[in-house]
Each structure stands twice: as structure tokens, then as C-alpha cells.
Design a protein around this nucleic acid. Structure first.
Lengths: 131, 131
DNA sequence: ATAGCCTCCGTACCATAGTACGGAGTCAAC
DNA sequence: GTTGACTCCGTACTATGGTACGGAGGCTAT
């Protein structure tokens, strides 16, 4: 497949794939130079789709592109200890973030209730997150 | 108190407070112009600390500064319906985000386990987030 | 064989959320 | 009554993660 298909399979834009290539997160396969069957534009395969999807998922998990680059390198080098370390650190950060979001969610949910028409006179946004 | 105290009470830097002032999120009280007791620099009070802390907490809840600006305006105008709407929308977004993070957390936790020394030969980072 | 897409490449530009800098004025304490 | 810290202000710069543009070349369906 060519870059447009790869991008759409990964749920991103072509320019984003190219950006990831510049960042070293996605490979830039050599352009077939001779008169080969595949023509002269770069071709991508299912491994590339997998890699691209990984990047998206890892972003969703809160990894930065920098960290994702490390993870992708680790996947190649099999430095299990380092991989574990990164994963564990992120699990800790995620636990904390999840707790924070849960607290915020509950606070907002309470706020929405309090702001219900007919409830108390006020809708105290500013104090919504106070303990 | 002056801006440095306000900033430290809010857990941010002086420049950040000034940035919020430029964005209209924090007030810029008038500088006392005459020879008043409070001198000629801006003074802040506990309401300002409250406001600053709200901004931080709302950011933690995933609101952008733009949205936080809206919330702060709403707090003044008492448009309860709009406030409810924003809060509800964010609760929905938070629920979704929390689910996503939870799934990522579990995936990473599994990965860390699999990457334990002595476990399987591989430490399949790239497939960690696959279903 | 030509129109109408797509690819490739470099470079520029964008939004978000700050952070830094430098000079002028202010303030408190010694 | 001066020193040293703090304030004010405008402007510039940073990092992150893209997004857009324009021209040259490649591909394909008619």
C-alpha cells in the first residue's frame, strides 16, 4: 500500500505519517529505484500499520512521542528490563491520572446536579474542585 | 499579597499568573496610583488564590484554558444551563478518557508482567495495546 | 497521451501552554 | 540613602504535536 492507505488504516493524515517518519518513529522504506513492479513510490505493509496504530494507542496511554520512540527502539533491542521500567512508570502515572480524572469527574457531576434548574440558587463553579 | 505570593499559593510561577492575566483568566487589579498605604504594586487576595487554584484543578480535569475562561465567565453570569452543559459534556469526555486510560493501564501492566525476567522469551511491546 | 489524482520533499505555519529576558520602576531593610 | 529583591511590561523564545503549501515527479484510467 502507499502512504495514503497506511495513514487511513492508522487513522491519521498523510502529513502525520510523514511527521512520524521525520521523527524516526516510522520507517521510510527505500523508494524502489529501478523499473520494478512496485513502481517508484514507497510501499508499506501490515507491520507499518501495526506500528502506526501502536503509536496512536501509546499516545492515548499518555506517552509522549519521545517516549514512544524509546518503546519502539526497545521492541527491537529486547532490553526487557528497560521496557518493564518504562511500562511500570507509566502504570504508576496512569493510576494517579485516573484517580485525578475520577475525582474531577465526580466533582463535575455534582456541579451539574447542583446547577439543575430549581436547585439551590447558586451554581458555584469556582468552588467545584475544592475539597 | 503581591504576585509572587499569589503564584506560590497557587502552585504556579509568577510568569504563569501574568500569562493568565493576559489571557483574561486572572484579573489585573488596578495599580494603586496615589500614595496609598498599599504602595504602587498590585495586591491580590484570597479570591484570587481561589481562582488560580480553580484554573489548575480544571486543567487537571482536562479543560483547556479557553474552556476554563468560559467557566469563569459563567461563574459570574450565573447561566446555569450553560454551566450544566459544559460540566455534563466534560463528564462524558472524562468517562471516555478514564476508560481509555484504564485499558492502557491494564495493557501496560500485563506487558510489564510478561517482560519479567524468566517469563516468555519475548517482550512484545508493539502488540501491547492490541485487542 | 493526457487529465487528474497521488507521492515526495523541504519549508513554513499553527495552536496550546507556558517560560525567559531586559529594562524601568518600587519597596523594604539596613 | 543605597542595596537587593520584587514588580511591571512588552516582546521573544520554547516544546509538543501536528497541519499546510507548492512544485516536481509518478501512476492510472479513459
Amino acid at each position: 500500500m502507499t502512504i495514503a492507505k497506511l495513514a487511513s488504516e492508522g487513522g491519521v493524515g498523510v502529513e502525520t505519517v510523514r511527521y512520524y517518519q521525520r521523527r524516526g518513529l516510522m520507517p521510510e522504506p527505500a523508494r524502489p529505484s529501478g523499473a520494478s513492479a512496485s513502481g517508484r513510490v514507497r510501499r508499506y505493509g501490515s507491520d507499518d500499520v501495526r506500528r502506526l496504530r501502536f503509536i496512536k494507542a501509546a499516545q492515548g496511554a499518555g506517552f509522549t512521542l519521545e517516549e514512544i520512540g524509546q518503546l519502539l527502539s526497545l521492541d527491537a533491542t529486547e532490553d526487557r528490563a528497560r521496557a518493564r521500567e518504562l511500562a511500570r512508570a507509566r502504570v504508576g502515572a496512569l493510576d494517579e491520572k485516573i484517580r485525578e480524572l475520577q475525582a474531577a469527574r465526580d466533582a463535575l457531576s455534582r456541579l451539574a446536579q447542583v446547577c439543575e434548574q430549581g436547585a439551590t440558587r447558586l451554581c458555584p463553579i469556582l468552588t467545584a474542585f475544592e475539597p
